[in-house]
Amino acid sequence: MDLAALGDCLGTSSCLIFQTVGGLKIGLLMFLVASGLTLIFGVLGVINFAHGSFYMLGAYLAWQTMALTDNFYLAVLAAALGVGLFGVLFERGFMSRVYRGDVLVQILLCYAFILILDDLVIIVWGEEFLSSLGIPDAFHRPPLFVGGAIVPVFHLFIIGFSTLVAVALWLFMTRTKWGKITRAAEQNPLMVSALGINTSLLFAGIFALGSLLAGLGGALAASERSISSGMGFSVVLESFIVTVIGGMGSIGGAFVAALLIGMTRSFGAIGFPLFTDGLMFVLMCLVLVLRPQGLMGRSGG
């Protein structure tokens, strides 16, 4: 523990900018993935424990598209759509069969997919890790110097893009018909089906959107992270923490919680370098014990 260092950092502008921008980037990437998880939980009431594997699949699909077309934006798009499609198949073919089963069955079904997908990517892409996608040419420029801190231009892109996605999600949920139905389904699924809305379609659509977000997060993260089988697990754990802290089903909560975790990681690395992981779990325990519905969740859990 090094609280003095943390105090020093908070007192200097360069350190503050360094860690804040880093924390924003980590947090917003985390938000992309976690928002998908929380969206699915909010409407369908199931935890997609295989969400991290969808993130991994996004990274691999992006890598493959990149290898074929050498176009970064196309790679990200293909990964998002591909994983979204995979999500629909997963929901229709498997998940929808266990909605009424108990939690154990849902968890184990997802776990089976984690195991299968981890091996499948090895069979298809080999057991050795793959290199990252690299960043698009447009961002191949020297980093910016802001108040004594260094800020990579590409990180600004990730921050901006993720924020746009968050805003778009918010607009979708509050301004569109389907968004309103989605929120109604969260409150009262019976009423929605009573109104003659095809809930199967709604569920498949929500699963597609949630999976798409995981794929998008995976592809963007792969721009600077190496890709390997099993890379999804730490991500799904983080996403859970974000989801639980923010309130399960709450997109806004996920946004706040992801930033909170991002900052915890960023500043925690200075203050508690060996316990940043433990710190996240402690935060989650605190929330579960003191406020089980999460920061922005509805009460009742």
Binding site: L108, L109, A112, L115, I116, D118, D119, L120, I123
Partner: peptide, 9 residues
Amino acid sequence: GLVLGLVIL
């Protein structure tokens, strides 16, 4: 993992 996953399914 693949085999175990399929067995679980």
